[in-house]
Amino acid sequence: MRCAGLQRYLGHDEGRVHVLKGVSFEAERGQVYAIVGPSGCGKSTLLYLLGLLDQPDAGTIEINGQRMSNSDDAARTAARGAHIGFVFQFHFLMLEFTALENVLMPMRKLGRLTPAQMETRAHALLESVGLGAKTHRLGTQLSGGEQQRVAIARALANEPTILLADEPTGNLDVKNSAMVFDLLTRLAKDHGQAVVLVTHNPEIAARCDVTRPMRDGVFIGT
């Protein structure tokens, strides 16, 4: 994944803020990147742009050599389904669904596997995040740490090339934070995926392969 000269404004009229001021960034498979910085510096905005959840006002984004920054909503949605996995701070599990169903959901949309293969893969992913025994629990019946582990399994469901995590440990205690981070990095490395995570936690950032500090909408001290 590569982005260059990303600019992004948020808000309207007098409330309009220049959040990203020409950010360039590159992520390679098998590497774990941490984007750190104070609140409001533009970390999450950058992550949503990289994840094609938002569109830049200027600049380019390429995924697997394909320019996605100016593509239409359908193309960006398809790219998200096939190449990008998301892990959000607030877990964002669909709580009326079981852990298994949450993991199956992106696979069912992509439709790359048969239903039986999807089930097998979802079970294997939940097993790998230590939730093999809780596959049929609803989201509401899982703890915060468990929910985040399901979210990681779900993000990996379609074998994305890149995994984007927005404060994945921000809502967890120290023990769970360490567990989730280890899991995220181990699974990503095992499958050769690039991981880009936004974090406030210096310990987590220190354990990443590359740390990119941000301030006022630009990377600093590269």
């Binding site: 949605t77 398809a78 607030f90």
Partner: peptide
Amino acid sequence: TKDIAILRSMGYERRD
């Protein structure tokens, strides 16, 4: 709305 965002992040289209 959160669930809609999750679905969209997973590749579900507007028409879905």
